[in-house]
Design a protein around this nucleic acid. Structure first.
Lengths: 212, 212
DNA sequence: GTCTATACGATGATAGAC
DNA sequence: GTCTATCATCGTATAGAC
């Protein structure tokens, strides 16, 4: 097995360190040391530390978005064939399951998704804008699909509820588990991930479908 | 009107700058300059930049927690007098309304609450731990109250749903409005704050009460 | 094109004079 | 309590080797 090239090693090291220590608390020097690369190589390949974060995000977020997009399309197509409106819970399942599954379906970085969760609410407008650009098309598609699923609700209300949904999901992916946040017994085995995903899907589906 | 002392001026300047630019993007030198104080005075009074953040948080979070605690007690007492279980929606109203109202009920820093939202998911364990210590008693009380309101649901499930609730609310207070996140028409007048709070309360109440 | 060595300004923190 | 001086470390930029 040959060693990956410098750019990939830098991405891997940055992903790992950003996940474990956060963006700010990770220095470029720590990344280049772990990647066995020179400090300037990071800026040569990515231009800046923020651009490196963007590259780390894109590498996994683009495939994830493709996956979520496909699953939403699948729900829409199946419903259309039956001449029915899409189901809210199925749409949420298409959106949430691939996201949370990312935490155990790991390529060596099961905690990558926490970087996404924190970028979403970053105080840095550059980071947030870049993240939003990546997910905006997906959110728009999901919003439109939910308007089909919930035709009796105003579009703006559905949008607000989708916003709350993203907050709940974002909170989940910021931590390795509820346990970490509330100091409960730490148990983060795959089964618990499934339970958490199902609990979250039940929660947001009921919230989205609430009477107006 | 006499000028506040150095410590207060530092707190005010830090609160304002952290709210607008985030913790990392604000330097101690910018804070001390705005506060007309010396750089070393910040470290003398607070010990470190992180400790300054903690002090900024505590100054407003402790009164806010007191207010939320009182309102939850009020719901519990009223229900107990009637011999009934507390109502989920009323508990959520007691928890959420004071939090979101903070954004317009400003003492010159209506955006302070966004610091809270971001501390909640901070990658820095020191920041997160300090925040958790501040809110843990309140969350425990709310959890117990919800167990009374939803006696047919297992305690652990209620806990998970409360976790989702905090995520949805935390997402709301990270931004000056949904508009900011999704580039919709920017309109953040007080009425919209009320609408958002009510929408959020409806959303999480339905999620908490969902069938198991 | 890739990468290394080196240097620059800015940052958080600290020691010690007053 | 306050301030000056100083330090190690940070992100970044550049010149030049391969």
């Amino acid at each position: 097995m040959t060693q990956p090239d410098t750019k990939t090693r830098l991405l891997d090291a940055a992903e790992s360190l950003f996940s474990r220590q956060g963006f700010t608390n990770t220095s470029l020097r720590a990344i280049t040391t772990e990647a066995n690369a020179n400090l300037a190589a990071a800026n040569y390949h990515f231009g800046s530390k923020e651009a490196l974060l963007s590259a780390v995000l894109e590498r996994r977020l683009l495939p994830l978005n493709q996956q979520r997009n496909d699953r939403i399309d699948q729900v829409l197509t199946t419903a259309a064939k039956k001449g029915e409106a899409p189901d809210t819970e199925e749409l949420m399942r298409a959106f949430i399951e691939p996201t949370l599954a990312f935490r155990r379906n790991n390529n060596g970085s099961s905690e990558f998704i926490s970087i996404v969760g924190r970028s979403m609410t970053s105080a840095d407008p550059v980071v947030r804008d870049h993240f939003l650009t990546l997910v905006h098309p997906l959110i728009n598609k999901l919003h439109q699909a939910l308007c089909l699923a919930l035709p009796h609700l105003p579009s703006q209300l559905i949008f607000a509820r989708l916003f709350f949904t993203m907050g709940a999901m974002g909170h989940c992916i910021c931590f390795s588990g509820i346990a970490e946040l509330f100091r409960e017994t730490a148990d983060s085995n795959p089964d618990n991930e499934d339970i958490m995903a199902n609990n979250l899907i039940d929660f947001v589906t009921a919230g989205l479908e609430a009477a107006c």
